[in-house]
């Protein structure tokens, strides 16, 4: 997919650059060991995010986390978790290329998301994230600032989601 940026309707929509992305499943009791391996205190409550330097983690479920790190550090992180696997049972799956991430920013970015999201977006605090739906496609919404979001979606659903986002963006621009 070609990375592009469109600036319309008080919203900038862009395909954001790739990152190393992981899905971590681990018993909450072993969170300390996972935090040590990742180099960041993983948040314990569903929805919460934690950030340290260029690494981020969001709790998606009672025993599930989404981890982000720079692309170049993917191998190091895989090795760090492999080193604790013998003592701490967990599953770490590299999902870097499974998703496409869209960045939405600008005064009407939140309004644009409401065209496909049934949830009350005001309840996602800055720095946090939530798995939800965008027009029936499962997505993870990350709130980076009051009017700055990232939407991560499985690659195969991306054309559908992108088409809806750009259509809604044109509607905002035309004053609808």
């Amino acid at each position: 997919m070609t990375a592009h940026v469109s600036n319309l309707g008080d919203v900038t929509l862009a395909v954001v650059p790739p990152v190393a992305r992981f899905n971590l499943r681990i018993a909450p009791g072993d969170l300390k060991a996972a935090s040590k391996a990742f180099g960041l205190d993983l948040p314990a409550k569903v929805g919460q995010g934690a950030h340290e330097g260029d690494r981020s983690a969001w709790c998606l479920g009672p025993d599930e986390w989404l981890l982000h790190a720079p692309e170049a550090e993917q191998g190091t992180i895989v090795d760090a978790f492999a080193a604790i696997r013998e003592k701490v049972a967990h599953s770490l799956v590299v999902i870097s290329d499974r998703e496409v991430a869209y960045g939405l920013s600008g005064p009407r970015a939140t309004e644009l998301l409401t065209t496909g999201c049934p949830i009350d977006l005001g309840r996602i605090k800055v720095g946090n994230a939530k798995r939800t739906v965008f027009d029936y496609a499962q997505v993870v919404l990350i709130r980076d600032a009051e009017d700055e979001w990232r939407l991560e979606v499985w690659r195969s659903f991306a054309p559908h989601v992108e088409a809806l986002l750009t259509t809604a963006q044109r509607e905002l621009a035309s004053g609808l």
């Binding site: 569903v46 049934p118 949830i119 739906v133």
Partner: peptide, 18 residues
């Protein structure tokens, strides 16, 4: 739309998520 409380998320959310 129905709103459903998830006891794990401790949050009340739209039926579309369930």
């Amino acid at each position: 739309m129905l709103l459903i409380n998830c006891p794990y998320c401790d949050d009340t959310l739209p039926e579309l998520e369930f």
